[in-house]
Amino acid sequence: MNAFLTGVIFLVAFTATGTSIDCVTCYSTDGTDCSGEVRTCTEGQTFCRTLTSEIKKDGVASNQVFKYCGGDDEPHWIYREESLTTFFQLEVENCETDKCNEKPAQLTPSVNTTNGVKCMHCFKDYSTDCNSEKTIECTGDMNKCLFVSGNICNNGTAFYACALRHCTNIASADLHPRYDEVDTGNIQKIEISEGIKDA
């Protein structure tokens, strides 16, 4: 599942469309900061953008960061999902002045208290579906249940089909970072459901 989550940030970072502004452009797989060249963005790219991800697996955190030119005015965006062993957060910040993205990224802390929502919890390699009696108690703003299937896992040499169900903070499938891949066939299905609330 780590390979799936890591792949998300590559796709989001390089789908920017977006009066000229000078932005730091760089990438790092180790931490929430990177240094790189300052470049003048192309016409229509009016924001400097920092995209940061965090993956926590069994309590061990790792981060990646992209800094680049962006073309839309979305001020702030946070995507979260959580299984019993893994937490993933993807956060996008925009700013509007020259080199405003040169500082280290600051990830918005997640709330770890349960919110009364439960989701089915499963993960299955080489499958387009998974079901389980097991559930996960969602935390913080993750009050929806996520189902994703398709060629989203990687064994180190190739992508292959897998499926997962757990908690997320998005309200609809079109807000998922890899939603555009449904059209290409890489993602077979993304579904968001209300989950199970405690009585």
Rank of each mutant, 00 (worst) to 15 (best):
residue 3 A to V: 14
residue 4 F to V: 15
residue 4 F to G: 06
residue 4 F to D: 09
residue 4 F to Q: 08
residue 6 T to R: 09
residue 6 T to Q: 13
residue 6 T to P: 05
residue 6 T to M: 10
residue 6 T to H: 06
residue 6 T to A: 10
residue 7 G to D: 01
residue 7 G to W: 00
residue 8 V to G: 08
residue 8 V to T: 11
residue 8 V to Y: 07
residue 8 V to N: 15
residue 9 I to C: 06
residue 9 I to G: 11
residue 9 I to R: 11
residue 9 I to P: 13
residue 10 F to G: 15
residue 10 F to D: 05
residue 11 L to M: 05
residue 11 L to S: 12
residue 11 L to V: 15
residue 12 V to M: 01
residue 12 V to Q: 00
residue 12 V to P: 02
residue 12 V to W: 01
residue 14 F to S: 04
residue 14 F to C: 06
residue 15 T to I: 07
residue 15 T to P: 09
residue 15 T to C: 10
residue 15 T to K: 13
residue 16 A to I: 03
residue 16 A to N: 05
residue 17 T to D: 10
residue 17 T to G: 15
residue 17 T to K: 14
residue 18 G to W: 05
residue 20 S to E: 10
residue 21 I to E: 01
residue 21 I to K: 04
residue 21 I to L: 14
residue 21 I to C: 08
residue 22 D to H: 13
residue 22 D to W: 06
residue 23 C to R: 02
residue 24 V to C: 12
residue 24 V to E: 13
residue 24 V to I: 11
residue 25 T to C: 12
residue 25 T to S: 12
residue 26 C to R: 01
residue 26 C to Q: 02
residue 27 Y to T: 01
residue 27 Y to D: 01
residue 27 Y to W: 12
residue 28 S to F: 01
residue 28 S to K: 03
residue 28 S to C: 03
residue 28 S to L: 02
residue 28 S to T: 01
residue 28 S to Q: 02
residue 28 S to V: 01
residue 29 T to F: 13
residue 29 T to N: 05
residue 30 D to N: 15
residue 32 T to H: 07
residue 32 T to P: 11
residue 32 T to K: 14
residue 32 T to Q: 12
residue 32 T to S: 10
residue 32 T to I: 07
residue 33 D to F: 11
residue 33 D to L: 08
residue 34 C to E: 01
residue 34 C to V: 03
residue 34 C to I: 02
residue 35 S to C: 04
residue 35 S to M: 09
residue 36 G to C: 04
residue 36 G to I: 02
residue 37 E to P: 06
residue 37 E to I: 05
residue 37 E to A: 13
residue 38 V to S: 00
residue 38 V to H: 03
